[in-house]
Design a binder for these strands. Structure first.
Lengths: 222, 222
DNA sequence: CTCGTCGGATACGCGAATGTATCGGATACA
DNA sequence: TGTATCCGATACATTCGCGTATCCGACGAG
């Protein structure tokens, strides 16, 4: 549950004016606040959560919060960055697992395993999407995240083009990567409503193979 | 802009205990409140809107609100039902426009025209999705809506199977309808971030033709 | 061990939003 | 036109959450 955030704050923090010493205690409470915030956000939704609720869940008082963040939005942003980076690494890992050749069905399985694992994360992520949709600054950040991920996928798809020819509808590997992302987002929407992770995985697998292979393959996942 | 809501409240309202006379004035203010709420929700997001803001935008005081709704959630729900029903009708209309045969590309164009028209509606709809994701009762309602829409699409796809064979990956027309919905949801996600409606339409067109036609068609929309 | 600094707790004042109770004008119907 | 009813406005009390200022214990350096 607890994401490892013990490393010093990554560059580009908008927070306090760089205190000379970064105490161990500070890092610990910051991490606890983030973890607690994740649970509370997942349970009630960002819009319905008060600062005090987060603090209570983390076992701190509001003083601790204001010592670490200026506003709930800032915490939310930090939380998203933290978790999203972890996921992105895992996806990159799952994509790199094969040798130079890409076994599409296997890679699809591994990636869906990572992406459709945690319903709570999907909830928080969607909250963040809604948030970003109304704040151009945040939207830019999210778009960059997505673009980086898409780049990794496209690169991987391109490298395997000899083996499994991609459909021509999309202009090359980049278009195909776009399609992969869209399929993932689409499946996510349904998953948020019916909460059936297994079905979502199988369904995403079908969609991806349908999108990524020219001829239809009769490989019903489940 | 103003959705026609002058008809008496549809059956199944959870609101006040059926006043004997439904005054014209009442219906009018209720509709104005709903319209104002739409604008405010779209602009700021459901979670960041107060009852008073809605009333102010509608030109009423809080008394009017409490006379028509018990809570903001109730208004939100009513708003969603109203608009979603309108959209559903429009989609059904766009699907039925051909004769008995379905011209896939044309139908796709018409449907995307309807579905990706109003960014504000997408914002509100996504807010509602997030809302539903945390309330099983509301989730059920939304799932039923989606299921009805999907049924209409599947029925239409099935009726045209002779002309354009569907890929075999999905089990028949129903699976294909699922795919259509997923593609729509996926494109929506990206659209919420980059706000580029035209690109979204073209992109959705590509995705749908890629999904619905067996062989790849070299029809780059833009 | 001691001291200086840091981080979180506590207490306070404030503003915003809520829900209710009551009032006066509008509306429908005879 | 008169009147009973309905609807929305106004006023009020209350609660909730926020941000700040201050204090004390913890931590780290020497």
């Amino acid at each position: 549950m607890a994401v490892d955030a013990t490393h010093p704050a990554s560059a580009g923090e908008a927070a306090a004016a760089t205190p000379g010493r970064v105490t161990k205690r500070r890092v610990r409470t910051r991490a606890k606040l983030l973890d607690a915030a994740f649970d509370v956000f997942a349970a009630k939704g960002f819009g319905r959560v008060s600062i005090e609720e987060v603090c209570e869940a983390a076992g701190y008082s509001r003083g601790a919060f204001y010592s670490n963040f200026a506003t709930l939005d800032e915490l939310f942003f930090a939380l998203y960055r933290q978790r999203a980076d972890v996921i992105a690494e895992q996806v990159a890992g799952a994509l790199a697992l094969d040798g130079p050749d890409l076994d599409v069905p296997a890679a699809v399985d591994r990636v869906t395993e990572v992406l459709l694992l945690d319903l709570d994360w999907l909830l928080v992520k969607t909250d963040f999407l809604v948030h970003a949709a109304r704040d151009p600054e945040i939207a830019r950040t999210l778009l960059e995240h997505r673009s980086r991920l898409r780049g990794a996928i496209a690169e991987r798809l391109g490298r395997a083009q000899g083996h499994t020819a991609l459909p021509a509808v999309f202009g090359g590997a980049d278009g195909a990567a776009h399609a992969v992302i869209a399929a993932y987002d689409g499946v996510t929407t349904q998953l948020l409503l019916d909460k059936d992770v297994e079905r979502a995985r199988a369904w995403l697998g079908q969609l991806l193979t349908a999108l990524l292979t020219e001829g239809a393959r009769t490989d019903t996942g489940h």
